[in-house]
Amino acid sequence: MHFKYLFLCLIFFSFQSNSQILEEKKNFRAADSLLKEPSFSVHKDNYFLTGVPLDEPIDRNSADVKYQISFKLRLKSKPLWGGFFPYLMYTQKAFWDIYASSKPFSEINFNPGVAVVRPFYLKGGRLTYGTISLEHESNGRDSIYSRTWNMLAFSLKSQISPRWIVGLRGWIPIVDKEDNPELTKYVGYGEASATYQIQPGRWSADILFRKGSGLINYGSLQTQLNWRPYKNENYYLTLQWFIGYTESLIDYQEHKNMIRIGFTIKPENMGIF
């Protein structure tokens, strides 16, 4: 009988040990999805787009160029406590009235931040990134033209199938209400995103929905159709449609309806959020 119990215990501990080894390998593969990227890499989409409004007359003052530069820096190749990897991030989005006579920049928004990212697998082997970030966004101006806010954000982004990537992100906004009255009504408290590979390596579609805190009127929707002309090159031809509020900070209370076309450089992998 003692040998029988000893044999059962050995089987149990062997199973537990194998489970731990498999779990460690799985966690390593999840972390490796971040480590196979260069430490300095694309964060959000980098793009250069030009377009026109869909809800007002098209002229030299209503057509524009919108471009975005975004990158991230992984600070360590080994995780911190809890398996988190630390990052610095920076995104800059500009609106350029290139068709106007003096070609001024109507608005530039600056978005630096720090983040910690925890890669892991959900049930079914779905690679997922959990991220906590502290970010600042402003237009770098003063007086009545100043627009600024901060956020503590939490996000989950997951590759739920070979073709679908989905994300959920929520934040606690920290806003100077004197300079930015009712800004939280327009930026809201969260967003949802999805990417679908229509033809993997060639065609993809993105959608980003942000819900303002207002009951009906606030929020935004941005959709993109991307075509990759060369599989060995990481740039796309992009058709983008934006409708809603807070496309730029300076006009956060104005409703926009813009369609644009241009070039996009996307993250090599699914991006941390």
Results as ranks from 00 to 15, higher is better:
I11E: 09
F12W: 15
F12D: 11
F12C: 12
F15T: 14
N18G: 11
I21A: 15
I21Q: 15
L22A: 15
K25C: 12
K26P: 01
F28E: 08
A30T: 00
L34G: 02
K36A: 11
K36V: 13
E37V: 04
E37A: 05
P38I: 03
S41W: 03
S41Y: 02
N46Y: 06
N46A: 03
Y47M: 10
Y47D: 04
L49D: 04
V52K: 04
V52Q: 05
P53C: 08
P53I: 05
D55F: 08
E56W: 07
D59Q: 06
R60G: 08
D64N: 11
D64R: 08
I69S: 13
I69T: 13
I69Q: 12
F71H: 07
L73C: 11
R74V: 00
L75P: 06
K76I: 04
S77P: 02
S77F: 07
K78D: 13
P79T: 02
P79M: 01
L80Y: 05
G83A: 05
G83I: 00
G83K: 01
F84C: 01
P86H: 03
Y87R: 00
L88T: 11
M89N: 10
T91I: 10
Q92E: 15
Q92G: 12
K93R: 15
F95E: 09
W96Q: 00
I98D: 07
Y99A: 12
Y99M: 11
F105W: 09
N109A: 08
V114G: 12
A115E: 02
A115C: 03
R118E: 01
F120Q: 01
G130Y: 01
T131P: 02
Y145A: 13
R147N: 02
L152N: 08
F154S: 06
S155N: 01
S155P: 00
